[in-house]
């Protein structure tokens, strides 16, 4: 399902500039970006670099909800975002916001998962089928009738994600999905993302400061600084480039060790993504 090739990209951002109403500063300046079907892309950069603004442009909150000075265009799956109604965009682009608490509206998990489907006006049987399917996929069936205040942060996160997946989007945006989670829950979320990518072919764009969590599953990292895309490439290309730390990226130790070694003339044959992979390289005679 997930084919990665030079075909028509799922998402293409073309010369996008944007400044919010009554803000003198441009939040985005001439952003160009293409994301292919089935990719997992990390969007990185320090706070205030324009990541959130770009994400809101992709799912249509900008310009539909936040007007401003908008130049250029974004095309998702053949539709120009600025000209497509929010209702349709909601089915194409899912958005998991940072705080799961503020995206659960209903009093039971299954009802909340159905929220987007109700808004679409799907018949009850179809909703029931999709809700059950998604709960199975995310292993949250036992929570079906629980009210949100009885859920842990990790469970809330899963429920919010389930509500998005139920709408069957091609592209899902995750905005700092692990910031409130403990390490193990965070890595479980990462495995879930990888599974959804493989099994359903969902393309992910993920904003995350703790890069070490996501580099093992990411195809690409896109780095933003001051409203522009400044670097782009595979995790190894970006994180072993000395420029990346000047853009405020926290280089995971494995990558800094790899590039320091290379600089000292003992480059490892294969660039590792995890500590275990690095140890393998080092253990090799």
């Amino acid at each position: 399902m997930a084919s990665k090739g030079p075909e028509v990209p799922l998402l293409s951002v073309e010369g996008l500039s944007f400044s919010y109403l009554d803000s003198p500063r441009a939040a985005l300046t001439d952003v160009n970006l293409k994301i292919n079907r089935g990719e997992i892309v990390i969007l990185a950069g320090q706070s205030g670099c324009g990541k959130s603004t770009l994400l809101r442009c992709v799912n249509g909150l900008i310009p539909h909800m936040y007007p401003g000075d908008y130049k250029g265009r974004i095309v998702v799956d053949g539709d120009v975002v600025a000209e497509t109604p929010m209702g349709k965009l909601a089915q194409m682009v899912g958005f998991l916001f940072q705080n799961p608490e503020n995206q659960i509206f209903m009093f039971s998990v299954e009802r909340d998962i159905a929220f987007g489907l109700e808004n679409q006006g799907l018949p009850r049987q179809e909703m029931r089928r999709r809700v059950d399917e998604v709960m199975g996929l995310l292993h949250i069936e036992p929570l079906a009738l629980r009210p949100p205040h009885e859920l842990s942060d990790g469970q809330k996160q899963r429920v919010a994600l389930a509500g998005i997946i139920a709408m069957r989007p091609n592209l899902v945006i995750l905005d700092e999905p692990t910031s409130l989670l403990d390490p193990k829950t965070a890595s479980e979320l990462v495995s879930l993302v990888s599974k959804l990518n493989k099994e359903l072919g969902i393309t992910f764009v993920i904003v995350e400061h703790r890069l070490e969590l996501l580099t093992p599953i990411a195809d690409r990292i896109v780095v933003m600084d001051k409203g522009r895309v400044v670097m782009e490439g595979t995790p190894t290309e970006v994180l072993t480039n000395p420029a990346s730390s000047t853009h405020g990226l926290a280089i995971p130790p494995v990558f800094s060790l790899y590039s320091e070694l290379a600089e000292r003339g003992s480059r490892l044959p294969r660039a590792p993504l995890t500590p275990e992979e690095m140890a393998q390289e080092l253990n090799a005679p």
């Binding site: 130790p253 494995v254 500590p275 275990e276 140890a279």
Partner: peptide, 17 residues
Amino acid sequence: ARVSQPQLVALYESLSR
């Protein structure tokens, strides 16, 4: 306790020497 190891510790533990 659902705590993960820091990268440098994980690396250290996977090293043969």
